[in-house]
């Protein structure tokens, strides 16, 4: 079967100077939710614009469902829909009118048009505001309207560029609930760009981390976090005297990767805290040790990012993020 997206050594150089993509290799399976995670300026948008046939790669090849994005652009455009980062609806007409105009531009037959629009409004939860000017919508509603517009073509894959940028947490949550509803209904593949780690963590089945035009890591959220190192379970034990034979015995337990003491806390390094915890507590009980407190420290995607790029995602993103959000606000 064809991959939903396949990129082979993709390079994009702007004006012969700025190297936005520096040899991207990537495959994305169909019918999942895929996140391309990286700081601003990492090349996320460029990659997405190449995949949606807006830009031509400088070298390398890219395929969407087996179709070459440069040679079969027209066919690719029939399969994909795209929600750009910037606002992409007309604000001086109503939400319904936006859908109607887009439906006509997309060439949806007259008979199906109303049904498709109704369905899109329904799934995105915009039925009660469809007659109002988009100018009066909140940021989250505008995003949902844009996704509704993108739904009209019944795409096989939907590309979303920073779908929740500038939205508050509540609005972000609703956008994702609606997106998942849409995905369930249509079985569409979702490919989104984000620089919010938690968003990739929560909603993506599969993540690629991109930095300076290169994919630096790849896997599910869990796999990526495991690749950084394990999770740490800390036990605060009552009347506990550290004895080396005991630590040695714990070390020999199945699933345990390391043991060390820190501030009188017993720290145990494991691959997966939840599944190792019962076994370890059983062992402690068998040694008649009573536990006062347990805490688990898990690596975040930020740690993953740190490992692969040598920088913190949050810090890299910050200033341009602020600029972007302000830009969105100014746009209305």
């Amino acid at each position: 079967m064809d991959f939903a997206v396949q990129a082979k050594n993709l390079v994009k150089v702007y004006n012969g100077k700025v190297k936005a993509l520096d040899g991207v290799d990537l495959t994305v399976e169909a019918s999942g939710t895929f996140a391309l995670l990286g700081p601003n300026g990492a090349g996320k948008t460029t990659l997405m614009r190449i995949l949606t046939t807006q830009l031509k790669p400088s070298t390398g090849e890219a395929y969407v469902f087996g179709l070459n994005v440069t040679r079969d652009g027209g066919k690719v455009r029939k399969l994909v829909s795209y929600v750009p980062q910037e606002m992409s609806v007309w604000t001086d007409i109503s939400g319904y009118e936006n859908l109607l105009i887009y439906a006509k531009i997309f060439g949806i037959p007259r008979l199906e048009r109303e049904k498709m629009i109704d369905e899109a409004l329904d799934i995105m939860g915009l039925n009660n505001v469809k007659g109002e000017l988009v100018r009066t919508y909140s940021g989250g509603m505008v995003r949902r309207l844009e996704i509704a517009c993108a739904m009209l073509v019944k795409p096989k894959i939907m590309f979303l560029d920073e779908p929740t940028i500038g939205l508050d947490p509540g609005a972000r949550k609703i956008v994702w609930e609606k997106l998942n509803l849409f995905k369930k209904e249509y079985g569409v593949t979702i490919f989104f760009n984000t620089h919010y780690m938690d968003e990739a963590d929560l909603y993506a089945d599969d993540i690629a981390i991109i930095d300076q035009g290169k994919v630096v890591a790849r896997g599910t959220s869990e796999e990526l976090k495991h690749s950084v190192g394990g999770e740490i379970i800390s036990f605060t034990l009552e009347n506990f005297q550290s004895e080396s034979w005991l630590l040695e015995e714990i070390r020999r337990l199945k699933l345990v990767r390391g043991v060390f003491m820190e501030n009188k806390d017993l720290n145990i390094l494991v691959d997966d805290a939840e599944s190792s915890l019962p076994c370890i507590t059983d062992f402690l009980k068998s040694k008649a040790l009573s536990v006062n407190r347990i805490s688990i420290t898990k690596p975040t995607l930020d740690d993953v990012f740190l490992k692969y790029t040598g920088g913190r995602l949050e810090e890299k993103g910050r200033i341009s993020d602020v600029r972007q959000v302000r830009y969105m606000i100014r746009r209305g």
């Binding site: 614009r49 949606t52 046939t53 807006q54 027209g74 455009r77 029939k78 994909v80 829909s81 795209y82 929600v83 750009p84 980062q85 910037e86 606002m87 992409s88 609806v89 007309w90 887009y102 531009i105 997309f106 060439g107 844009e146 517009c149 993108a150 073509v153 746009r331």
Partner: peptide, 22 residues
């Protein structure tokens, strides 16, 4: 172009010529 409308139109299954003329 500043907003995303043009980008979205460019990904629509219609020819660029028809976008310009339209």
């Amino acid at each position: 172009r500043d907003s995303g409308i043009l980008k979205k139109l460019l990904v629509a299954p219609v020819s660029r010529y028809s976008i310009v003329v339209g």
